[in-house]
Simulated assay, not measured.
Amino acid sequence: MKKYLFILISIALIASCKTAEKQNVEPIHIDPKLLIPWGEALKDETTAESPAIYEFKSKDKKLWYLASRHSNKIDQPVFKYISEVINKKPDVIIVEGFESDLGFSPKEISESVLQGIKDGFYPAGEPSYAIELATKNNIPYIGGEPNDKLILQEILKAGYTANDLLSFNFVRRMPQINRSGELKKNKVENIYAKYIKSKARDFDYKGKTLNFNKFKEWYLKNQGKKFSLTAGEKGETAPIEGPYFTQKISLEVTKIRDINILQLISNMMNKYNKVVIIYGSSHYRVEHKAIKASLGEPKRISL
């Protein structure tokens, strides 16, 4: 009987020790103060390859960061990389392009981005392919973007106007508008009007917005050139100390976005064991130092 009691007590002590060990595990915190300035990040050739998968391990946790190259066509390499990383069977996937506040696998996002897919062409780009595969494999996904109201609030603090932010967003979207084929179906001024109305609603901005002619005046004044259908190309909205007004706004917006991404990775890593994030490679180049400080050196996977 005494021997039996001793065994029971021993089992209870072991179980309580394991529980204590779990409780004492330090939560993962990725420090946004370690973000690398964009200009400096671009000089680091070790992170220049894209697409590429970076596999991080921390005890029983794994993070796969797919540094993506934006594309709409399924024959482009990034689509193969997305398929590969989702085959890792993650617990959750972080996707570029919509707010984290919308929660897991928001129906309105999947219905929107999966429209118009035909013959291997994805109008909403490679994030929609990731969402398609996540849905097929019953893997929850969540957006990595900060709340639009927060972005507007921070941009106003930095001395810009709401119309500066709205106009910047349209210029930044122009390359995707070109890739998606929208211009074959609609005039750019109609696309602009619809986009600005929707984006103002996202920002909860109730003031007066610029019509298309006023936007073109804004563009000429701030960019130093006339608006054309190639607007937004060749780094025009890159977050660097460059000649364009949009680049200055981008520095502010990108910092807000990258802080949100790191906070979300930390939250997801603390909640799940296997996490995938699929984001443009420029974000990885800015964020990798902060992630390494928390999770250690990754293994780079090239296909």
Rank of each mutant, 00 (worst) to 15 (best):
N270A: 08
N169K: 01
P90N: 03
I94N: 13
A134P: 10
V275W: 15
I36F: 11
P298A: 11
D91Y: 00
V275P: 11
K197R: 04
G159I: 03
N87E: 15
R257I: 13
G120W: 08
I11W: 02
G235D: 05
S68V: 13
D44I: 05
G116C: 06
P243S: 06
S58K: 09
L183H: 07
K184T: 08
S294T: 06
A158S: 10
F227Y: 05
S128L: 08
S68F: 04
S83T: 10
R172F: 05
R69G: 07
N211A: 02
N138W: 07
Y141F: 15
P243D: 09
T237H: 02
G116D: 10
Q115T: 09
N138S: 14
Y4D: 15
P243E: 05
Y272I: 12
K289I: 15
L264H: 08
R69W: 12
A238V: 09
E233T: 10
T19E: 14
N190L: 04
E182A: 10
Y122E: 11
N186E: 15
E182Q: 03
L114Q: 00
N260M: 01
S167V: 00
N213W: 12
K43M: 06
D31Y: 12
I131H: 07
D202A: 01
S266E: 10
K80Y: 02
R172L: 07
N190R: 01
S180D: 07
F170Q: 00
K187H: 13
N147I: 01
S10E: 10
T209I: 13
K234H: 15
V276S: 03
W64T: 05
L251E: 04
N72R: 07
F104I: 05
G232F: 09
N137Q: 11
K107D: 03
N186K: 07
L166Y: 01
P175R: 02
K255A: 02
E108Y: 05
I139E: 10
P90F: 11
K216G: 10
I155Y: 00
P90L: 08
G116I: 08
E233I: 05
T19R: 15
L5V: 11
K234S: 09
A20Q: 14
A52S: 13
K225I: 09
G143P: 12
T19Y: 09
G103A: 10
I94W: 15
L303N: 13
Y54I: 03
A124S: 13
D164G: 03
K185A: 10
K33F: 06
Y272Q: 07
P77K: 10
K292E: 15
T209P: 11
I278A: 09
G181M: 13
K194Y: 01
A124F: 07
P298T: 10
I191D: 04
L156H: 14
P106W: 01
G181L: 03
I53E: 00
L295F: 01
L152A: 08
S110D: 07
V85L: 03
K107L: 05
N270M: 05
Q153F: 00
D204H: 11
G116M: 03
L114M: 07
L264Q: 13
